[in-house]
């Protein structure tokens, strides 16, 4: 029962309501932090942590926060967790911290997080909100990882920094800015196409 619930929610977060591919929110980190799979995973995990915590906290506070000032209140809660994650990464994963740069503090303005707070956590009890935050975070991470894997493989010929093909090939464009836009565009088009042929 419990497991079924989580499975169903995971399917919702990763497939039917995937924040990147279905709802198309939070483009900036998707483009900026996917130069390789490691950075993409790091960014995804940070977002899972912030989203789960902020959804739970906002759900706990939902009856205390006056409706009129709810958005600033949500932003303060989110910014607090982002600061915690920012300091933790700086302390324990300095290379990742260097690579992600200002995109860690920018999790604050990631539309997905405020979006889930407003659309879900503000109206639901703690446990479902926590699960919602987690599965949406997982959906975000899976999407980032997919883009990161494609870009790293095509751009540098490696995966998570390890060479996986016997010959060396580099298509640097994929690691640079244009590659980010083009990869995401093509992946979105592919998903649209799959969706269309499924509907038929």
């Amino acid at each position: 029962m419990q497991l079924d619930y989580i499975k169903k929610e995971l399917h919702r977060g990763v497939v039917t309501e995937n924040p990147i591919f279905r709802i198309v929110l939070g483009m900036c980190p998707t483009l900026a932090t996917t130069t390789n799979a490691t950075n993409a995973l790091g960014m995804g995990l940070s977002v899972i942590a912030v989203l789960t915590c902020s959804n739970a906290a906002i759900s706990l506070l939902r009856n205390v926060i006056p409706n009129k000032v709810r958005i600033p209140a949500f932003i303060i809660v989110i910014a607090t967790f982002v600061t915690v994650v920012d300091l933790l990464i700086a302390a324990f994963a300095p290379t990742l911290y260097e690579a992600l740069g200002i995109f860690i503090p920018l999790i604050v303005v990631n539309c997905i997080i405020l979006g889930r707070a407003e659309a879900f956590a503000a109206k639901n009890p703690v446990y479902p909100s926590l699960v919602d935050g987690f599965v949406m975070g997982v959906g975000f991470t899976v999407s980032l990882l997919l883009i990161g894997v494609i870009r790293e493989y095509l751009g540098a010929g490696t995966l998570f920094g390890y060479a996986i093909t016997p010959f060396k090939h580099e298509f640097i464009l994929m690691s640079l800015a244009p590659g980010a836009f083009i990869t995401l565009g093509l992946v979105l088009a592919g998903i649209n196409h799959l969706q269309r042929s499924n509907d038929k």
């Binding site: 198309v24 640079l176 244009p178 590659g179 836009f181 083009i182 995401l184 565009g185 093509l186 979105l188």
Partner: peptide, 12 residues
């Protein structure tokens, strides 16, 4: 979105 992103890529 797909064509918008690819156009942006070419602009980039």
């Amino acid at each position: 979105f797909p064509i918008a992103l690819i156009t942006t890529g070419i602009m980039a």
